[in-house]
Write a protein that binds this DNA or RNA. Structure first.
Lengths: 137, 137
DNA sequence: TTGATTGCAAATTGTTTGCACGCAA
DNA sequence: TTGCGTGCAAACAATTTGCAATCAA
């Protein structure tokens, strides 16, 4: 893989944040260094890097894709109001995957877990109530 | 909530399948009974029904929204090749959520788990190799 | 030198919205 | 009768693609 200025910058942005940015967030950041990058380039690189296992594309719920330079196995919490995503380093659920394997005829390759909730900021917006129920599946 | 022909048909489709269809799948099915429904109506109803808790919108990875008339707590396996989604009735991970609660300052409201793999059909497409690695987060 | 990579603009895809009309309650 | 719900078309948002020009190796 050729290490172009653009690709280096994109990787740099991802490695310099813990915020699991979406493609257009990355784009905005990269633009500060390279004012001419195009959004298409950002998308192409994010996918290529993800395909190569250098970064991770988060299959989270709630709309747009998010990217993470931390490719170690860990889970996430997502704020249902503002979309903030934090890491959650829980022990891996290999036993659970083993359990699942008994119940399906799929060839299992992995799993992910996403916790839903409200981040500290959004918990305090007392007025806006927000739906109360649970968000499990 | 007014029970229109359209809404009844949409609910009927969802209750008559185990395939977790996307909006346009539902649309296609409903059209067989009501040739004039519009896709907009299907979207509006799916969201309204989900908001009312009558059905569930699946926060799965891999693009488009999928819908499920089974609102009980259960998990899913998704085929990374064809997108097929099966149910997986594992015991709920309340203990895991308790564990997570200790590690975050989010107010937790739920979680979901998605297993990734290849469905029986896609496992057999020997030629197309497909990426081998694990798909955990 | 040369094929991978880029920027740009246009095309796709999935979903949402404005609005006048229609129908369930 | 009333206003929620509908069909239609147009608007949107996120992402992808075609193509000629560019540049890392």
């Amino acid at each position: 893989m050729r290490m172009t200025r653009q690709r280096r910058a994109i990787l740099g942005v991802l490695r310099g944040t813990r915020s699991h940015p979406s493609a257009d967030r990355v784009f905005a950041q990269v633009r500060e260094q390279l004012p001419n990058v195009s959004l298409a380039t950002v998308y192409r690189n994010l996918h290529q890097l993800a395909g190569a296992g250098v970064i991770q594309e988060l299959s989270v719920g709630g709309g747009l894709s998010r990217f993470d330079a931390d490719t170690s196995l860990h889970y996430h919490v997502r704020c249902i109001d503002c979309g903030r995503i934090d890491d959650l380093h829980l022990p891996s659920l290999d036993d659970l995957e083993e359990e699942a394997r008994k119940l399906t005829d799929f060839q299992l390759l992995g799993h992910h877990v996403e916790f839903l909730g409200k981040c500290p900021r959004c918990s305090n917006h007392k007025g806006k109530a927000g739906k109360a129920g649970r968000y499990s599946q």
